[in-house]
């Protein structure tokens, strides 16, 4: 369970990027952070992970304030998958082993090996364990970075646009996988995502942001033609197809 309380962030003396953000996500639940470019979504994610330090507010994981923990302990609670996939010449096995970095003191223990092997098996990545990371496709790399995050055995998984560089099939596969694993391992998943239809399909809760503030926060009902028009300044139609909400863009003028 992750609780974000009244977070405000700004660079220096510039205009605030985040103002008074509060929300929470339970274990096993997945939450989508939505909003226009520049709304502060990625900044929020980095504040939740202590890559950035907000001027105000707290982030609690199971009641413990992560701003008062040593860094390696934060990493044992929260795992983060960056939007940008690195160009790294490590074996896939070693990349996933990095998930054990927060636990490693002197060297790799037998337990670390076992966890890495279990994660590789769970995500069906064994066959590429000894391939170099930078020789794989974007979809495979994204999955490996998620596997690495799972090897951290976190309580919360933060994903910054996990589908941005993936083709259609991989978008579905990765999101399905994340949701299944989140539910199975009781991990709270928080992701920044641009595709509203994918978000509707794979997330339980929604945080709609506009200009650094929360516009609305709740379940599927908050995604309406009106709220999208307000946040993105575009006109859309929302229909129901096979019992699922579907968003269709109409025109960029309101």
């Amino acid at each position: 369970m992750i609780t974000v309380k009244e977070i405000s962030f700004q660079y220096g003396k510039e205009n605030p990027i985040l103002e008074n953000i509060s929300f929470s996500a339970k274990a096993g639940e997945s939450l989508a952070i939505l909003g226009n470019n520049g709304a502060g979504k990625s900044t929020l994610l980095k504040c939740m992970n202590r890559i950035l330090m907000p001027q105000q507010g707290r982030v609690l994981v199971d009641g413990q304030n992560i701003y008062q923990m040593p860094l390696h302990q934060v990493a044992q609670n929260l795992a983060f998958v960056e939007q940008k996939i690195p160009n790294s010449r490590l074996k896939v096995y070693d990349v996933v082993m990095l998930g054990r970095k927060p636990y490693i003191k002197w060297g790799i223990q037998k337990q670390d090996e076992e966890i890495v092997q279990a994660v590789l098996q769970q995500m069906d990545l064994q066959k590429m364990a000894v391939r170099y990371f930078d020789e794989l496709s974007g979809g495979e790399q994204q999955k490996i970075m998620i596997a690495r995050a799972l090897a951290q055995q976190p309580k919360v998984l933060l994903l910054d646009e996990p589908t941005s560089s993936l083709d259609l099939r991989n978008q579905y596969e990765v999101l399905q996988l994340v949701r299944d694993i989140g539910r199975e391992n009781q991990i709270a998943v928080v992701m920044v995502i641009h595709d509203l239809n994918l978000a509707l399909r794979y997330c339980d809760k929604f945080l709609l942001m506009k200009d650094g503030r929360i516009y609305e926060y709740g379940s599927q009902e908050i995604i309406t033609e009106q709220s999208i028009a307000e946040v993105y300044q575009v006109k859309v139609k929302i229909g129901i197809l096979d019992g699922e909400k579907v968003i269709l863009p109409c025109s960029h003028k309101i």
Partner: peptide, 20 residues
């Protein structure tokens, strides 16, 4: 050695892995 390996997958990911 593990700090250097963590930096291999990017600076921000390294921070998120507990590397200062």
């Amino acid at each position: 050695r593990w700090d250097y390996n963590a930096l291999e997958v990017g600076e921000q990911t390294a921070i998120s892995l507990g590397v200062n």
